[in-house]
Design a protein around this nucleic acid. Structure first.
Lengths: 168, 168
DNA sequence: TGACTTTATATCAATTTGATATATGTTCAG
DNA sequence: CTGAACATATATCAAATTGATATAAAGTCA
């Protein structure tokens, strides 16, 4: 278990592979860090830095570690997936054709970048089993979506245009 | 655009195909319905029902329709995916082998059900283009994940057990 | 040089969740 | 045939979360 500051935790969630299925903002991270320190689950060490505010480096305590182990031993909640892109596709008939084509392409780019990012992180450092497992899971899921978008682009955009033309 | 009550909207999100990528609770649906009615985006009609509270059936107004069209004409936010299952896999080494195997199997079942549900809804009623598109997107994404879980089950669970044995 | 990005913590209004309250009808096992 | 559980239906609320903003200084780059 590595040590980290609140800022570094946020960065990890944004940039590391597991950012694919975990999310948290400063407004939840900092209060959680404070509360968990009070409860003895974490210990803090302040690193002084010229100018910048002190960097508070948190480390998990033995107590925190056993609490974590307990917290993991429950049935996980269902996966949650939200996609404004798919919502816009669902109501595609209401959108101008050029905007639809634009966001379709943007989504393809976004998925390509996301997959590339996960792959790259995996290559950079050798990962433990769990990290490798979730990385590959992310890659296959996102790739399936990307592949679907690439294969159905012409047909879907074309069909929607025809559907709209018919309605007018 | 069909008409619906708050309760029916919740049911749709839970049970219909687009529930795969949309979520909302009563605490957000009812206030939103009220606010949007005040703003003239929706109209309400109360259906009296013996015993049960009146069913409030909402319909989108022309004003609401044009507001919706405008709201759709923006760049969609990034997809969000959260998975406690993957989080537990990430930290798989901290979990007892039997619990790990249990939730692994449960996740496979969950994905199978989810895929079956989307497929079934598609067969039940002929869908418009957008609905068909998002249904298939969901099916291919979830299937890729399911497939990955099925193919890597032995190896991943076995490797984690070995890793834990080594550490002790 | 001046604008933008990065490091770093923290707070806050607004929104959202998940749970609960209320009330009645339906369904199904024992 | 009864009683428990589930479904219909609206609504609210504490607690959690988001997304934005504040503060402050260093580094980067045109």
């Amino acid at each position: 278990m590595r040590e980290a500051s609140g800022y570094e935790i946020k960065k990890m969630i944004e940039e590391d592979v597991f950012g694919h299925f975990i999310e948290a903002s400063y407004g939840s991270i900092y209060p959680a860090l404070g509360r968990m320190t009070e409860e003895g689950l974490l210990s803090v060490r302040s690193e002084e830095q010229a100018g910048k505010p002190d960097k508070k480096v948190y480390t998990i305590t033995p107590s925190g570690l056993s609490e974590l182990a307990m917290a993991l031993e429950v049935d996980p909640a269902k996966d949650k997936f939200r996609s404004e892109f798919l919502f816009q596709m669902l109501l595609g008939e209401m959108l101008p054709a050029n905007h639809l084509a634009l966001i379709y392409e943007a989504q393809i780019d976004y998925l390509r970048e996301e997959i590339a990012r996960i792959k790259q992180r995996g290559d950079e450092s050798e990962q433990h089993d769990g990290m490798q497992f979730v990385s590959k899971y992310g890659i296959v899921s996102l790739s399936a979506g990307l592949n679907y978008l690439e294969e159905n682009k012409q047909e879907f955009l074309g069909r929607l245009n025809k559907a709209k033309a018919t309605k007018q």
